[in-house]
Nucleic acid binder design. Sequence first.
DNA 1: GTAGTGATTTTCT
DNA 2: GAAAATCACTACA
Length: 193
Amino acid sequence: MPFSQDFYFQPTLKVAEQLLGQHLVYESPQGLLIGEINEVESYIGIEDPACHGARGKDLRNAVLFGPGGCAYIYFTYGMYYCLNAVTGIADSPSGILIRSIIPIQGIEVMIKNRHKGKTKSIPDKELTNGPGKICLAYRLTIAQNGLPLTKPPLYIEPSGKKISNFERTPRIGISKAIEKPWRFYYSPTNSCQ
DNA sequence: GTAGTGATTTTCT
DNA sequence: GAAAATCACTACA
């Protein structure tokens, strides 16, 4: 069972914290894709200068101004898409950027999608460890913008895991409000970073 | 291993 | 015209 829409009506930071360890599921035409979310960033309303919604509603961020529970996918840097989970009620432009996941199912498909146009092979660990990479691996584009995250084909569901040992750090890749510790991250298993 | 930079296009000023 | 919630490749230590 995916999370219901009520889940996304909680305060954004609370949702972000609870998304850690859950499963991002996409029933793609290529097969079932599942990944465990291990890194997110919160973007909260018009008071957050780094949030796309801070400068008012426009064509690009319209979904962010909708009610929680939808996927906000936007195009950036001319080449990449990023996936967000919209939170809060309508007209409150808050959302959570899914920065990194751990591939669980459909890894073959992800590898195939990620290797398009590339010559070098990509280590499993780097398949989906960045917002642009997730969308490449899942083949998410502007075409999926605005899809509900509460039912197939694209949804987030509980994994049964509870993450307690996570870190809070400043957000990455932005130039405003860089002091806000609204990035949540945990180390998947053993190793590094 | 770390640091620097080009790719590429949409949207806003 | 400039900047953007990025990525991957190259150069150099």
